[in-house]
């Protein structure tokens, strides 16, 4: 089914919770109100004309500083300095968090992309893990790395980082740690060659004894 037709069916079902459809870019997507995402996903899975039985991917995104006309100047993430120390900044992140759902239907062979945005202050989206079980770990990952809360998730724990890790690394204003459990982390700055060319070693003089000198053995 055509992307536009899928959106029209969805908008008819959701009413005001469907915020718009965009097919200007490489991939079309629909914007949905966060509160309506569970209804939208249930409808997309259960309706016979749509039958989205697989959640291909669920991505948590920090839209802080995103500027589509910025030509790559959106925001500079914090890394490490030349001395290996964490870069610091007073800038507090702004802008929304987002979740993107990439769906696929095995029986009807069509795809669809849903997007939701949630304000940085609340950072909360209803879970879809009851609709597709695979979402449970994807949502745990989004919580772990981006810090988006999924309401109604049965087991929302960190999945890749340590349970007592501080902060969410994929936030644009995240500051790298300088040590972890008393082990110093000497990071490398981004975009720099960590392996500089070695100094040219002087040619060995022919007078020096070679390694297989029997006197050494």
């Amino acid at each position: 089914m055509d992307q536009k037709e899928i959106y029209e069916l969805l908008a008819e079902k959701l009413g005001a919770a469907a915020l718009g459809f965009n097919d200007e870019g490489v991939e079309a997507f629909a914007d949905v109100e966060p509160g309506g995402i569970a209804d939208a996903c249930t409808f997309l899975r259960d309706d016979g004309r749509l039958a989205f039985d697989q959640l291909m991917c669920l991505s948590g995104i920090d839209w802080d500083g995103y500027d589509e006309n910025g030509k790559g100047k959106s925001v500079k993430i914090l890394g490490y300095t030349d001395e290996g120390q964490p870069e610091t900044s007073d800038r507090v992140g702004e802008g929304d968090f987002g979740v993107v759902y990439s769906l696929y239907s095995h029986s009807l062979r069509h795809k669809f992309t849903l997007r939701v945005r949630t304000p940085r202050t609340t950072a909360s989206v209803p879970t879809v893990s009851k609709i597709w079980s695979t979402a449970a770990w994807h949502e745990r990952e989004a919580w772990d790395l981006v810090g988006i809360n999924f309401e109604g998730h049965a087991d929302l724990r960190r999945i890749l980082l340590e349970e007592h890790w501080v902060g969410h690394p994929l936030r644009k204003d995240y500051q790298m740690p300088s040590q972890w459990e008393n082990v110093p982390l000497n990071g490398q700055p981004y975009n720099e060659n960590p392996f500089p060319k070695p100094e040219p070693t002087p040619d060995p003089t022919p007078d020096q004894p070679s390694g297989d000198d029997p006197a050494e053995g």
Partner: peptide
């Protein structure tokens, strides 16, 4: 600037990347 999800069949299954670009 744009965003797309694309997948291939790797030896283990469906390996996908969701890339968002801001033009840089």
């Amino acid at each position: 600037a744009g965003a797309a999800y694309s997948r291939v069949e790797s030896s283990k299954g469906e390996l996908g990347h969701y890339i968002i670009s801001d033009g840089g």
